[in-house]
Amino acid sequence: MRAFANVHPAVSMTYFLSVLLISMFLPHPILQTEALIGGALFCATLKKRGRAGDIGFYLILFVMIAITNPLFSHNGVTILFFLNGNPMTFEAFLYGISLAGMVVGVLLWCKAYSEIMTSDKFLYLFGKAVPKLSLVLSTALRFIPSYLRMSRQVGRAQKAMGLYAGKSLTDRVKNRMRVLAALVAWSLENAMDTSASMKARGYGKKGRTSFSLFRFRRSDGILLGACIFLLALPIVGAALGVTEFNYYPRVDKIETSFMALVIYTALGLLSLLPFILEVKEAVLWKYYRSKI
């Protein structure tokens, strides 16, 4: 997962937003399939551990949603059979599958998002809008783990003195309360040192800048351009009604006009983009390796 994780946060953010928007608001079977496949392939390149279990989870979720829809929705004209006197329709089945595809697709993309958009990238993007916010969040992120560690230490110290070391509920609650009291004093004391350290390094002067390690490279620009272009096509298509697709009362035919084909290709490319980058990188590495 190196290639896509290393692009500029602004680019990856734009990318995730556009894919998520399309897969949520354009319920078209071809587009959804593309987004789903793209998301699945992307996730597959992300992490090695726990993938088998994940696939099981998504499959079950998919089947559940796909089956649930026809059980409750009886729209559509093509009746397949009756269950407890209720008509099960072909259209409802298809719509269920489409819905399931959308939900699973969005989940997969969200998973990829959380892997790629780490807290520092998020801070970098939105810290610009609210300069103080990024520092506040950064110090909070710093403080929480040390707070937790201190609370563990205090808990142990108290236990080793034999104070409320019992396992009963009252003992435990009392112990928690005492630890909390100690932690308040400790964090105030700590905050004094931290604020001295901040002041000693000139915090509070006017004209503070915000530094980050991210660089906007030429390749990021190209990627961003491609992203926007590929996003624009389906949006234009949606505006013209090309991507409109109805399941009820009868399933529409999938459009195959030139415009539609262009849109399908565009979204296909967009959703496969990270996977393609990943594969390109892997192939390049193989190639360099073989030359060494």
């Binding site: 807290s119 520092d120 520092l135 950064s138 110090t139 992120l141 710093r142 040390s146 004391e189 700590n190 905050a191 040192d193 931290t194 001295a196 350290s197 901040m198 530094f211 390690l213």
Partner: peptide, 15 residues
């Protein structure tokens, strides 16, 4: 200052 822990302000080394 003396305490290494409480002087660190941010969550990342580079920051």
């Amino acid at each position: 200052q003396q305490n290494p822990e409480s002087q660190v302000v941010t969550d990342k080394v580079w920051h």
